[in-house]
Write a protein that binds this DNA or RNA. Structure first.
Lengths: 181, 181
DNA sequence: GTCTATAATTTGATAGAC
DNA sequence: GTCTATCAAATTATAGAC
């Protein structure tokens, strides 16, 4: 019962997370949804519109999964675990990297509206980590970039273990930083 | 006095590091080198050949810059600083991200020969970090992915500070891990 | 080694019928 | 909302002259 528009976004997200902005075309999407490319254009007049819809929905999904950065009774270690788990789950479920990491690597080819959404996503992640873990900005940035790089490398090596492995060290880092205060 | 072949690789590397595998074309390269695209094909019969040459030279340059992972009198902290500095320098000099990180994000679109070189690069980095810093594999992976992600995000946000910021936290992580032993 | 010319394919996008 | 048909542009790649 999913409407065509949603199906298009589903297929597009999968393709973007595998091959980036140039990794999907209206024709390929149309073929998978079993309509014609002109029908895709009816829902999304141009590529920028479609990419924007994909990026916005993805960002919202991840932020929803992260939830409240600092709920009562949550420790820094717990929130670090939660953060890693959300991305690990997203990777395992899709078998592909983070949409933001994929598109960041093509920044020069992106419409500025799409870049804007990606920047918002980065800022939201760093902000969540600062609040949830009580760590300084540079530590929050390290944790974010490490998870992004982990997913990207895991996709390259086709080895999910990379995400789990980096997650473990992220959690250890948080523990060490916590103990040092 | 640089020969045409070298000029082509120079231009191609710059373009790949900005826009990935689909971010360069024979025609664009030809225009910058001031020859025709068929002449580029003379030096590199197809795109795979050219990408391979770019990736191999890049890998060699970075590994040369890293040097001996464990020279006498070098501490883990010193080597961590050295590692971060090499990538930071590469980012500042080129104004663009790591070639490996760029291409990793398009793994599905790459010829397997190119993927192979990227995987070698990842393994060489992790191995260097393990030897030079005396850290376990998962920590080496975290440091590598954090630097890759930092360069990618710095390119997106057009903010060099991101690389410096993550570098600082990487060094702090190494110090904490060192003190915990 | 570099050129002109061109083939074969793919792409994003639009017009207009139903 | 979906279709057929089509356009203009760009892409990788090759053949053959000089």
């Amino acid at each position: 019962m999913t409407d065509t528009r949603t199906k298009i976004i589903d297929v597009a997200e999968r393709m973007v997370r595998v091959g980036g902005y140039n990794g999907f075309s209206f024709r390929e999407i149309a073929a998978e949804v079993d309509i014609k490319s002109s029908s895709v254009h009816y829902h999304f007049p141009n590529k920028e519109d479609l990419a924007l819809a994909v990026a916005n929905r993805y960002m919202q999904n991840i932020l929803d999964a992260l939830g409240d950065p600092a709920p009562v009774d949550a420790t820094a270690e717990m929130q670090a675990g939660r953060y890693c788990q959300v991305f690990q789950h997203s990777f395992v479920e899709s078998g592909s990297a983070c949409l933001c990491g994929m598109l960041s690597s093509e920044t020069a080819l992106l419409p500025s509206s799409v870049k804007q959404v990606l920047i918002e996503f980065v800022d939201a992640n760093v902000s969540w980590l600062e609040q949830g873990l009580g760590v300084p900005t540079s530590d929050a940035r390290l944790i974010y970039t490490a998870m992004e790089g982990a997913m990207s490398t895991a996709a390259l090596k086709q080895d999910v273990q990379w995400v789990a492995s980096v997650s473990e060290s992220v959690k250890r880092f948080v523990e060490l930083a916590q103990a040092a205060t």
